[in-house]
Design a protein around this nucleic acid. Structure first.
Lengths: 208, 208
DNA sequence: CATCGGTTCAAACGATCGTTTGAGGATACG
DNA sequence: CGTATCCTCAAACGATCGTTTGAACCGATG
């Protein structure tokens, strides 16, 4: 119980890595602990030993990534919030770019698929967990949008933010038909995605 | 082998009804045939007898709804496509409203959740099936958008349509935080959804 | 060396899954 | 009535699931 070191080759870390990948590919129910531990090169019982249960492992996966995403978004927002010359685009970029940056490393992009699946699965306890973690973030963004778009009612504002979130989730999880061309590097493709997404969102947020 | 009658109380129809509801609530893997047949009030073996397998039942569920949705969209598009005074809003309404109308009846709205889950599950055979059924529809809509937005490149057009689809999927499956207030009727709420969604999409599609 | 807490391991547990089976009911036709 | 054709039913099949168990291993401590 002494060691806080996250040796990246520990059994725990190997499980988390394999879990993120397999959950994204097959979903929480679809990925079995036997596939998972086999891919991680650890014993079947290791998951229950280190995490208590499969469900708690899922929760760990979410907490790890969502904490990072939330912090990045709030940091980016803090740089522009309340400033006089801040634009809608600045705020949207603070909201969107951390999500896209998260998908920079491979396991991060897998996580976005995990997240999209979790949304789709409509699990109530998971929704509540997300709401608790995301709630204050969304409130801060909403407040800043309200400052920049004073002509919009609260209802109208909620709607537009919600629709932007939908487009973002869709684009990030690779739902759509837009696939990266083989002659475009991953970095360039992500930047193009960000550009399209932000311009689309700016138009959707700020139309009369 | 004679009877094409779809008596709505037949074993087959009862299975399809219960399946749509249960798949939406628990997903394809999450809903077992025992839960399903129990809810439908039929014997466990009835699914395999009438549909061959669980997988073929899923396919039937999709075919039934997607055929109706595709036809509605194409009919609505045909009323405005190629006309001189057609607007972006007209085309978007032809795309969006049939989807919202589908969710008019209860089982229809459940189907939209089924569809959203299917997207999230990234199943390749299912994606191919959807692509085959949706392909020509999307192509016709894309062509009409291209006519009304000649200044956009093909790439740019694909991106915007994709993002609209994301927002639509998100809004329709009830992902978001926007919930119907108790003092607003279901009909009114759906009309409000349509209005918000279409105006948002018009702005996102036609911005410079 | 002996001991002990933390960790890994093979094996098994009970539950649940989709599917199959074979007997029996129901209805129509000769 | 006898037979043929759907259809329904209870029961069982093998597979796979998450979890538990108890022994074995291992490095640190006395």
């Amino acid at each position: 119980m002494i060691v806080p070191v996250n040796s990246s080759n520990s059994t725990k870390e190997r499980i988390l890595g394999a879990a993120e990948s397999l959950f994204a590919q097959r979903g929480f129910d679809g990925a079995s602990l036997r596939q998972l531990t086999s891919a991680a090169g650890v014993n079947l019982a290791a998951v229950n030993y280190h995490f208590g249960s499969k469900e708690k492992l899922v929760e760990q996966i979410f907490r790890r990534r969502l904490d990072a995403l939330n912090n990045s978004r709030l940091e980016a927002l803090a740089l522009v919030a309340g400033k006089e010359n801040t634009t809608i685009e600045d705020v949207l970029a603070a909201f969107i770019r951390p999500a896209l940056d998260l998908s920079h490393d491979e396991s991060g992009s897998l996580f976005m698929r995990v997240l999209a699946r979790a949304f789709a699965e409509h699990d109530d306890t998971l929704r509540q967990f997300l709401s608790e973690n995301y709630g204050h973030v969304m409130r801060q963004f909403t407040a800043e949008f309200a400052r920049l778009l004073p002509q919009l009612s609260k209802q109208e504002l909620y709607w537009r933010i919600d629709l932007v979130s939908g487009a973002l989730t869709h684009a990030m999880s690779g739902f759509g038909m837009i696939q990266r061309k083989s002659d475009v590097s991953e970095t360039v493709h992500r930047e193009q995605t960000a550009q399209h997404l932000i311009r689309f969102a700016v138009a959707g947020m700020s139309h009369p």
